[in-house]
Amino acid sequence: MKTAKLTDSEYLVKAGKIIRARQMTKIEKLFEISLPGGESLDHEPGQFVMVSIPGVGEAPLSISSSPTKRGSFEIVVRNVGKVTNALHKFDTGDTVGIRGPFGKGFPVQILEGNDLLFVAGGLGIVPLRSLINFVIDNRRDFGKVNILLGCKTPQDMLFGEEVDSWSKRLDVNFDITVDRCEDPDYNGNIGLITKLIPGVTLDPERTFAAVIGPPIMYKFVIIELLKKNIPERQILVSLERHMKCGIGKCGHCQIQNYYCCKDGPVFTYDQIKDKKEAL
């Protein structure tokens, strides 16, 4: 058996330096990462990277920052298992392996000039934030912008300050709801995110909806969006699957004939509505 060094392997990783780490909640931690020589990640909103620790493994993680933020990018990691747990022990100055960006993100060129409705539930804010900030940074290129957010309790809301700043903008319509709240002083919405949709006034023909949340959220949100007459190909969702390679080979992420990692993770509802096993 002979061994040769490969310089063009898809599995090579870049050394990502953690330049900022912040514990956001008990189980979610944010990392800001820069690549060697200040190289830009050059991603589209909605894409993901494979983040790895030698000896532990790799995990697909959404890029949470907008491509308009140069020189570094952000990820948010929920601690659920082997790799994510090990990542939580990492801090500023540590190095992680980065492959990517991978997948098809949001079609920003197509979105230009149109009205937008963002719907994020739970951890869905992490990838959607990339597109929201992209749109806000290029605000005049888009029509009306609506942001609807949902999470379990007010304490679970990620990016509190940033969300606050969105809510205060005059060029953005904003609403938020929580599943439950024990705090008697809380006077916001309580209930599922689906309840916020009927109240939004929009022109369905020129509205694109971008939806990201836990699997069960999609079905119900999409029903509400269809009731608003938003065309199926203007509803964009991002799907999560088990991913090992990120490049359309290992088969883990397959949704019928789609590779979620390569053909997605962002799909139009039109693409997947007839695919059983998709939603």
């Binding site: 000896g55 532990v56 298992g81 082997k82 747990n85 090990a86 022990k89």
Partner: peptide
């Protein structure tokens, strides 16, 4: 054993 020493789970 290596997993224990490295502090990572073994499934």
């Amino acid at each position: 054993l290596k997993c224990i020493l490295a502090g990572i789970p073994y499934a």
